[in-house]
Computed example of a mutant assay.
Amino acid sequence: MKFTLIFSLLIFAACLIGFGQKKQHDMAVTEKGLIKITIMYPYAEGKTFNMAYYESKHMPMVAGYIGSNLVKYTIEKGLSGIAPDQPLPFMAVGTFYVKSLSEYQAAVGPHRDAIRADFANYTNALPVILVSEVIK
């Protein structure tokens, strides 16, 4: 009976691991070809970032401007550098995944001043922006 229970748990664990791998693969397939707008907020002494505001106000505001072209967006909070003795490179990273770069630019262009003016509500850092295409 003990062997049966252990065997059942091992099978269950293998199924969970396999499910997780399939889900990651499916996600990569659905993102391939999307345009990714990554907004990175560099850490430096004296720089601040209000994650609660960014998550509840700023990113939803910009997502609303993007509209149906938006596939998804993510928000990341920086925790550390690659090694314990290295400084944090970025306080936060926001990412928008869109279907069309030209539609994105047309949607946010008229709101650029409002987007930039809102920076003061959550950070005193100047973001670094990368526009890329998801390959895999």
Rank of each mutant, 00 (worst) to 15 (best):
P42E: 08
Q24L: 10
I82S: 15
S100T: 11
I6K: 14
S102K: 00
V128A: 03
Y41W: 09
K47M: 13
T74G: 11
K22F: 07
K99H: 06
N69M: 02
L130G: 01
P42A: 15
Q105L: 03
V71L: 07
A125V: 00
G20H: 12
S68K: 08
C15Q: 07
P87H: 04
E103L: 15
L101E: 10
A44G: 08
S8T: 01
V29T: 11
M27Q: 12
K36P: 01
Q105G: 00
Q21M: 09
I35L: 08
K32H: 03
Y104K: 02
G81E: 01
L5V: 07
R116F: 12
S8E: 01
S102H: 00
G46A: 13
D85F: 02
P42H: 15
Q21A: 09
R116K: 15
N69P: 03
I66H: 13
Y43C: 11
L34H: 12
K32T: 07
V29I: 08
G78V: 06
M61V: 10
S80Q: 08
R112C: 01
F49Y: 15
L10K: 06
L101W: 13
G94Y: 08
L79E: 06
M59N: 13
Y73I: 02
M27P: 02
Y73H: 07
A117H: 02
D85I: 12
K77N: 05
G64T: 02
S56R: 15
A13N: 10
I129G: 00
L79Y: 02
K2C: 07
Y41K: 04
I11H: 11
A83G: 00
Y65Q: 15
N121A: 06
K77H: 05
E103C: 13
L79M: 04
K23A: 11
M51Y: 15
G64I: 03
T123G: 10
N50H: 10
T4F: 11
P84H: 11
V108H: 03
I17N: 03
A92P: 14
S68V: 02
R116P: 06
V98C: 12
Y122C: 05
Y97F: 06
G33P: 10
L70R: 00
E76C: 07
I129V: 04
G78Q: 01
E31R: 11
E31K: 14
K57Q: 15
A107S: 12
N50W: 11
